[in-house]
Amino acid sequence: MGVTRLIDSTRIGNLRNHLSPPVVALLLAVLLFLSGGLINPNFLNFQQATNIVRLAAFLGIIAAGQTLVIISGGEGIDLSVGAVVTLGAILTFRLSGGDNNLIWLGLVMACGAGMLIGFINGLGIALLKIPPLVMTLGMTGVVQGTILVVTQGEMIGAAPSLMRELIAEPVVLGIPGVIFIWAAVGIVMWLLLQRTTYGKQLFAIGVNRTTARLSGVRVQAIVTVTYTLSGFLAGLGGFILLGFSQTVFLQLGDKYLFPSIAAVVVGGTVLAGGKGSYWGTMSGALVLTLIDSLLRAMQLQEAYQLIILGIILLMLISVYGRQRTLRQ
């Protein structure tokens, strides 16, 4: 821990006062990418760069909903995104059955199912006052249980070939489609947060629910909409993930759950709510993916990869994930 303290008290600590967390995260991403070249010269090329952005895109899209939920405050967190991602992918896999003409059905059902789950989460949290962590954790079990009941453990279906071509493979200028989708999600999220009444009210309830309610914000409605949106984005994430993974299994989405939270935090969104941006989350997703790719490129033992990942995460959080002091 001495290292983090040192970093914090010296240069990056000062930088923190001048640069916003998203900028720091983006600079860090570039730095990490360049340092990847030191470890392995093959790391530094256009293909590797697009590959990393492509991997970050999945995490980024899934973390979009998490960003909204965390901004909404009230200990907001969505632990059901992993299960919803899996559900979205399985629905597309099953309903399209590999038929390119039925991709739309998969997309509609994946997003629709995600919205429904998010809506139930929202109702439980807003109306029944169940803590978000517990409600969404409970829903995870319900979603996994539903998948088991419907599939009986057998994954029938296939991934449409067109999805792979449109999502995972280069479409224009050697850039995979998922990166364009991510950019579109980024623009929509920016508009949503900065240019709509919903966005303003979301930040308002994140800062202080009582004052928001007294100034006419329908807090319960905004909370419900936010979890519904998170479910929608996770469902969309599952649909897109299938274009990349080509196959489905029960734990497909699990490994994106906590990284989606970490990406939000690394991007400077405060877990207490009321402050944050999606562009920070995008940088956060890039940083996390880069760290992962770098650790792989170093070809370390898995045990060391895990230990280093934990230490780096702790350092990242301590650079700008700090809460205010009690004295203030």
């Binding site: 914090d8 906590f258 939270i261 045990a303 934990g310 995460l313 702790l314 959080i317 809460q323």
Partner: peptide
């Protein structure tokens, strides 16, 4: 505890990050 109490880091992400360290040591 040091990270949460004295560095004032957020408990959820801090203990999530440290869980990787313990997982790595277990594997080692």
């Amino acid at each position: 505890g040091f990270a949460v109490a004295y560095l004032r880091l957020q408990p959820i992400v801090t203990t999530y990050a440290s869980s990787f360290i313990f997982s790595g040591i277990a594997l080692l």
